Amino acid sequence: MVTHPTITPSDRIRSLGDRRAASGLESRAALRTAAKTLRPDCKVRGKTVVITGANTGIGFQAARQLAAAGATIVLACRHPGRMADAARAIRSEHAGATIDEVTIDLGSLRSVEAAANIITDRHPHVDALINNAGMTGGPGWQTLDGVESCFGINHLGHFALTGLLLDRLLAAPEARIVSVSSTAHRFARLDLQDWPHPRIDGIYRTYAASKLANLLFAHHLHRRITAAGVSLRSIACQPGWVATKLLSSRPRDVRHRASGAALRAIGAFIAQPPEAGARALLLAAAADVLSGTYLGPTRWWRTRGPIGPERPSDGARDIDAARQLWDLSVELSGINFALLAEPAG
């Protein structure tokens, strides 16, 4: 079982921005400088970074670049074979890389708990948790816990993993929790009755709803961190339009094939490679970014370009909805984040 340390006054932050919601970055110039490259001597050297879905796409690219910068990387992936291939690929490029491999199925809360226990046993602290893994699912798909697959894997599994690793995050100075959302959240309908058993029809709409849930979680987590005064940061990001398998697969349901074909056609013109898409994750994990910030590409309708602060949709900033989603997630997962106070009001 995971044990929780006592929070003492020395654990509390008294620096600028600790008692208010972040409106942006401490320095946009610093962000632009950090965006150019992650050098081997950057601040992640010697730190432990857990990345879900790190065997492919932007998760793999983030793991690869952070390992090159000297971080200890914990790959947390569902498929052990593909995870091992990813670890070998990183080690072949960077012989001195420190890579750990932990199997996790975010669609099973039992698997999430087992993975969290392994990480806790192996690592005394976690400096960054990048909640990256995601899927689009299909009509009627459910997790092993009986909730809609996008909601269960993209949000609920990460909610539980974050709560179970909270003590290891608190054991690290200025640790951060990175929630990977998507610009698709802007197309989601904010209706709490759509979670965890949505009435909405369409695999892309359920995906968008799960990405909205990622942002509601990240921002409410930031509010709880601020209320507790602990040295954590909750940072959200979106990678832009990336040429990965996530939204490029052909839906099995004929009703969604036309929209899938349209997405692939658009992506052929504007999608960026995973190396570029990983930039938002890297900055969220390593740059001097305030808790509560949302990062994403700043050009081409937020699909590509330099990374900067972004304003989420109005629905993603709905405090009441975030609190209700949090309560629902606690009820479904059994993880209550007891170390973080509920914000007043």
Score class of each variant (00 low, 15 high):
123 H>V: 07
211 K>S: 05
121 D>K: 14
201 D>A: 10
206 T>Y: 15
216 L>I: 06
227 A>H: 03
177 I>D: 00
213 A>W: 00
119 I>A: 00
137 G>T: 12
183 T>Y: 14
143 T>K: 08
217 F>D: 09
170 L>G: 01
233 R>T: 03
225 I>V: 06
166 L>C: 00
222 H>F: 05
171 A>K: 09
163 G>I: 04
178 V>Y: 05
205 R>L: 10
147 V>H: 15
190 L>G: 06
217 F>V: 11
120 T>F: 15
211 K>H: 08
215 L>A: 01
166 L>V: 01
155 H>N: 04
179 S>N: 11
145 D>G: 07
217 F>M: 14
232 L>F: 02
196 P>D: 05
131 N>Q: 12
159 F>V: 06
186 R>Q: 14
126 V>Q: 09
162 T>N: 04
213 A>L: 05
162 T>A: 08
171 A>D: 12
121 D>E: 13
134 G>V: 07
139 P>D: 14
139 P>C: 13
163 G>K: 00
168 R>L: 00
207 Y>F: 09
147 V>R: 08
211 K>E: 06
140 G>W: 13
154 N>E: 10
225 I>Q: 04
230 V>G: 01
174 E>A: 09
136 T>W: 14
178 V>Q: 04
222 H>V: 03
214 N>W: 10
207 Y>L: 01
231 S>L: 00
137 G>V: 15
121 D>S: 15
166 L>G: 00
151 F>I: 11
194 D>N: 15
122 R>A: 15
148 E>K: 05
182 S>W: 01
173 P>K: 08
121 D>V: 02
214 N>H: 07
216 L>Y: 02
214 N>Y: 03
199 R>H: 13
158 H>A: 04
113 E>R: 13
154 N>A: 10
161 L>S: 07
150 C>D: 11
215 L>K: 01
165 L>V: 02
188 A>C: 07
222 H>Q: 10
139 P>H: 11
233 R>P: 02
131 N>H: 14
186 R>T: 14
223 R>L: 12
225 I>M: 04
144 L>M: 12
133 A>M: 08
117 N>T: 12
207 Y>A: 03
154 N>P: 11
143 T>L: 12
190 L>H: 11
204 Y>S: 08
121 D>R: 13
178 V>M: 02
